[in-house]
């Protein structure tokens, strides 16, 4: 889950063994491989760049300290993601920022009812106002939902791995994805309805 393809399980085993043996450069490789995933999780949770940097460092500090406890029961990226998520969650709890909002059927149910006659994807994509609207709505999502959407869409992490990272059931993750995307479509519909 680095900048391109995630390292293979075998490569992770070799890397973990090298870090535990304190091989020169091994831990640096581990950080390089997983900094993107860690940064995305924490940045989507807390959003503040300075906090993100500090919490990412805390995450890798914990990874370094507790790597001997890692038993390869999940991918190394998932394990590091779990650590990053719990570090960010504790930070939000300390600041009394709610992690998620209670699931409500209203927005999602309303938006899926309405389907306009036509929609020009490329024209809509070039519309700066729509683009700004969608980004603002994504930013306005609660930390958990924002993180789940980012992991699924941007980092292409499968649902079962997001479930492991967050400690939630796969069904809950699916529900968050479904409702958030339906809600975003509802907001898109509302804006398009005003335009068309």
């Amino acid at each position: 889950m680095g900048s391109s393809e995630p390292p293979s399980v075998d490569a992770d085993r070799v890397l973990v063994a090298a870090v535990l043996a304190q091989a020169p450069g091994a831990f640096e490789t581990l950080v390089r491989n997983y900094q993107r995933l860690c940064w995305h999780i924490i940045n989507r949770m807390v959003r503040h760049p300075d906090d993100t940097r500090d919490l990412c460092q805390d995450t890798f500090l914990r990874v370094h300290r507790y790597l001997y406890q890692y038993r390869f029961e999940s991918a190394l990226g998932t394990w590091i993601g779990q650590v990053a998520y719990s570090v960010a969650r504790r930070h939000l709890e300390r600041k009394r920022i709610p992690l998620a909002e209670p699931a409500g059927d209203g927005d999602a149910a309303n938006s899926i009812e309405q389907v306009p006659d036509g929609f020009d994807l490329e024209a809509a994509s070039a519309d700066a106002e729509l683009d700004a609207l969608l980004h603002a709505e994504i930013e306005a999502l609660p930390p958990l939902q924002r993180t789940v959407l980012t992991l699924y869409h941007l980092d292409e992490v499968p649902i079962h791995e997001i479930a492991r990272i967050t400690g939630l059931a796969a069904g809950t993750i699916k529900s968050h994805l479904f409702r958030c995307r339906a809600r975003l479509r509802g907001q898109l519909q509302a804006r398009m309805g005003g335009v068309r």
């Binding site: 994509s125 683009d131 969608l134 869409h153 995307r181 898109l188």
Partner: peptide, 8 residues
């Protein structure tokens, strides 16, 4: 939904 996926 493609527009939303693109934004994400």
């Amino acid at each position: 939904y493609r527009l939303i996926a693109r934004a994400l």
